[in-house]
């Protein structure tokens, strides 16, 4: 974390190419910069800002409210399914049978499926919206309140600050996803029977393995948000208004989600960050279908590198006037 930073004047003067990977840029300057100040940078000191960032992020009412909403979604879905099926009928009222979100029909047989349903329900909008709020506000919020200038003269270092902001956003992605998953697990276990899990391919695995797969799915869902987090962070470096950055990120998410449903645009679909999001269901097959999962993670990686670099180029060359 001890980034050499505030980038050299030369870096900042030249328009930095948007493709320069931040990691490399950090590495090249870390060595010669390990001066008297850097020397005391034990791991503890280097992580101070990260710990501070985590603490102020997760102590904010706004963050807690977002998590509370995510906590509530599986409970609502679980109760709705319970009520609808309390007369012994199946979900969807015996109509089409294929209605509703993925996995919802299996919930009455096994509460664990509420985890998969809840993630499938929240992944298109709820989860990424909360990530958009946190990522969009990351730098723009500090600029809006003026605290950015004090962090920079502390000196937090521009690259270090950006890394800390991104890392904290990723922690939030994981926390948000786990909130949904755990809430669903508890609700599912309370309202429905749990036991051996029948996978989509028909094989039956033990409840333990089912739990393990549920956890793996939660991690994959969290990783699916990595690209959006980088995109939000980049937008956040463009403006001095936290609200603008949040709204722009969420607006972009909705736009991209809509574009992803227009068949005429299917040429560009594989490049859209939400395109492979629902591939997490492939983890419930035996053997696991890796193809789409890998594409999803690869795409997220590309987004993270491209927009992470763009955010870095922007923040390190920008005049902080707020």
């Amino acid at each position: 974390m001890s980034r050499a930073d505030t980038t050299s004047a030369d870096d900042a003067r030249e328009p930095v190419p948007g493709t320069a990977p931040p990691a490399e840029a950090g590495a090249t300057t870390t060595q010669p910069e390990a001066g008297p100040a850097g020397q005391g940078g034990s791991l503890g000191r280097g992580l101070s800002l990260f710990r501070s960032e985590l603490s102020i992020t997760f102590r904010r009412w706004r963050t807690l409210a977002l998590l509370a909403v995510l906590l509530g979604v599986p409970v609502v879905v679980g109760i709705a399914v319970k009520i609808e099926t309390s007369d012994g009928g199946s979900v969807g009222g015996g109509g089409g049978g294929g209605e509703g979100p993925a996995f919802i029909a299996q919930i009455t047989n096994n509460g664990l499926f509420l985890v998969f349903t809840a993630l499938a329900v929240t992944l298109p909008f709820f989860l990424p919206m909360t990530v958009g709020v946190v990522a969009g506000d990351a730098v723009a919020g500090e600029a809006a309140s003026g605290t950015l200038r004090y962090l920079l003269v502390a000196p937090a270092g521009r690259t270090r600050l950006l890394c800390v902001k991104y890392a904290t956003t990723l922690v939030f992605c994981l926390a948000a996803t786990l909130t949904v998953a755990l809430s669903a697990l508890v609700t599912g276990a309370l309202l429905f029977p749990v036991g051996e899990v029948t996978l989509l391919s028909g094989t039956t695995v033990s409840f333990g393995e089912g739990l393990l797969r549920a956890f793996a799915i939660a991690v994959v869902v969290a990783a699916s948000l990595v690209g959006l987090a980088a995109l939000g962070l980049f937008i956040s470096t463009l403006t001095n208004s936290g609200v603008t950055a949040m709204a722009a990120t969420v607006g972009l998410l909705i736009t991209v989600q809509i574009l992803d449903t227009i068949p005429q645009l299917d040429v560009m679909h594989p490049a859209l960050f939400p395109h492979y999001w629902l591939s997490f269901g492939d983890l419930l097959r035996d053997p696991v279908y890796w193809d789409q999962l890998v594409r999803n993670l690869g795409l997220q990686g590309v987004y993270a590198v491209v927009f992470g670099s763009a955010a870095w180029a922007r923040l390190t060359s920008r005049d902080v006037t707020a």
Partner: peptide, 15 residues
């Protein structure tokens, strides 16, 4: 907490 935050931003500050 504001001061703790600013102090944490300084990599040379002793925690």
């Amino acid at each position: 907490d504001n001061l703790l935050r600013y102090d944490a931003a300084d990599p040379t500050a002793d925690p």
